[in-house]
Design a protein around this nucleic acid. Structure first.
Length: 466
RNA sequence: GGUGCCAUCGCCAAGUGGUAAGGCCGCAGCCUGCAAAGCUGCUAUCCCCAGUUCAAAUCUGGGUGGCACCUCCA
């Protein structure tokens, strides 16, 4: 298996720290608002990584945090006059629900910041004791970036000259402008936590380092985790700072491999609150089947920036439709458990830094071959079972085609409409039987008016939402 | 300004030295009462210039054009 390491900027063969075991940590959401397509992309990428690692025989421990301490959460709580926990619980639950609808499985561990305060303060204390952090007169604790010779190496950055100028202007008590907060003193009565350094709140970067130590790190290993992942924007400063904290506060480096997924843009523009073009997952799910979104968001390489637009989404749907149509053709048959060459090749593609694109090419070719064979040798049982086994493999490793094929094609059509369509199909078939094609074509037009297409097959007449 | 990434058929998109995967769209055909679905066939020399090499989309240099990060952000 190969993974592109975004810190070393090269594709590396994956070797786990422990035999056949992988620890994976991914930066999760700050639960103060609805998840947008970018959250979905990141969750999907690492969901797929977990599946591919598992298919390669690894036992994966996947941790993704929930950041439930944050200024933005507090701000929202004050605005809405609600309790912090009410806000975080609401968005955490929404996150889980929406992720489930695009086929993202729950991580092995989902640590919350509020449940890891002790680990965080312990880590701060270690950093203070080893002279990598200092407390100011105001009660804040900062990481001393000058004390870490490795600082900025992770993100290949150079210390900027004007940083030193800013120091004069800054009213902060930081020794160095690059120093970042580990603990922020809070004087008011909003939300504070007790610590040996006084009342306050932990710094954002600290959270991840602490969670990794608590849940994943093996004391004697060279690295705390095998793989650390997150969005491309997290490399600096978040991951840089995380790495510094762990490096200086423990006896190991943070991660052996770093993976960063590319960004989701909307119609060529960056998605952001200020531009007002955030695309929330919950809104997308009203219009599109979750699996179509999954297919679309995963169809491009995870490292590339992704340009979301409805035309390409429609193309992805057509591609996913083909999987489901084949599934319909084989409805009700059992699978053969023998692994096929196709499955071997698919895993090979996905194991090469998750090359989904070439995997999809294999899938499309497999579908074509299967349809061709079914057209010419429809009663070939061994072949059918092999194809079903292939489809089942795709379901497991990519999460494509997991639904009932008939229900998939009926997304967004209510029960009443369904029965009306079915009635019309019965009437149309009667007309066809009597060779009254004028009547049958008229009935077909009525059916098409519901926004569906119909197809006559050997198994009967089926309809699909267009 | 600093750092880094990218540029492949109308559109989406693989491919990092050996002579351009796949999908969508389009065209032709098979199938069909007609359709739809399915199948078959057809469609690019890889932004520009120069260089390295027996051989380059793939390496090097220079241009042009996009984009990202440097601030909370997946």
């Amino acid at each position: 298996m190969f993974i592109y390491d975004s810190v070393q900027k090269t594709k590396r063969e994956f070797k786990s720290l422990q035999e056949k075991k992988v620890s994976l940590y991914v930066c999760g959401p700050t639960v103060y608002d609805d998840a947008h397509l970018g959250h979905a992309k990141s969750a999907l990428v690492f969901d797929l990584l977990t599946r591919v690692l598992t298919a390669n025989g690894y036992d994966v421990t996947y941790a993704r945090n929930i950041t439930d301490i944050d200024d933005k959460i507090i701000k929202k709580a004050l605005e809405q006059k609600k309790d912090i926990k009410e806000i975080t619980d609401f968005y955490t639950e929404a996150f889980h629900k929406e992720m489930a609808s695009i086929g993202v499985e729950r991580p092995t561990i989902e640590p919350k910041a509020t449940e890891s305060l002790e680990t965080m303060t312990e880590l701060i204390q270690k950093l203070i004791d080893s002279n990598h952090a200092y407390a100011t007169a105001e009660g804040d604790v900062y990481f001393d970036t000058a004390s870490d010779s490795e600082y900025l190496k992770l993100s290949s950055r150079v210390q900027e000259e004007d940083d030193k100028v800013q120091r004069v202007e800054s009213s902060s008590l930081k020794k160095n402008p690059a120093d970042f907060a580990l603990w922020k003193s809070v004087k008011d009565n909003t939300v504070t936590f007790d610590s040996p350094f006084g009342k306050g709140r932990p710094g954002w970067h600290l959270e991840c380092s602490a969670m990794i130590e608590k849940h994943l790190a093996k004391p004697d290993a060279e690295y705390a985790v095998d793989i650390h992942g997150g969005g491309a924007d997290l490399l600096f400063p978040h991951h840089e700072n995380e790495a510094a904290q762990t490096r200086c506060g423990t006896n190991h480096a943070l991660a052996n491999y770093w993976m960063h997924n590319g960004f989701v843009n909307i119609d060529g523009e960056k998605m952001s609150k200020s531009l007002g073009n955030s695309f929330f997952l919950k809104d997308a799910l009203k219009e599109y089947d979750g699996e179509v979104l999954r297919f679309y968001l995963l169809s491009t390489h995870y490292r590339s920036n992704f340009n979301f637009n409805t035309e390409d989404l429609a193309t992805s749907k057509k591609r996913l439709d083909k999987i489901y149509r084949l599934k319909k053709r084989l409805f009700g048959l059992a699978e053969n458990c023998e692994p096929t060459k196709f499955q071997e090749h698919l895993l090979e593609s996905l194991s090469d830094d998750m090359n989904v694109s070439s995997g999809l090419a294999l899938i499309d070719e497999m579908i074509s071959h299967a349809n061709e064979a079914l057209d010419t040798a429809g009663k070939h049982k061994v072949l059918k079972r092999e194809v079903i086994s292939n489809l089942s493999y795709i379901e497991n490793i990519l999460g494509f085609g997991v639904k009932n094929a008939f229900e998939y094609f009926q997304f967004g059509i209510d029960e009443d409409t369904k029965s009306r369509i079915d009635d019309l199909i019965v009437k149309r078939n009667e007309a066809k039987k009597e060779k009254n094609f004028e009547a049958s074509d008229k009935l077909r037009d009525e059916i098409l008016a519901f926004g569906v297409s119909i197809m006559d097959t050997a198994q009967g007449t089926f309809w699909e939402k267009v």
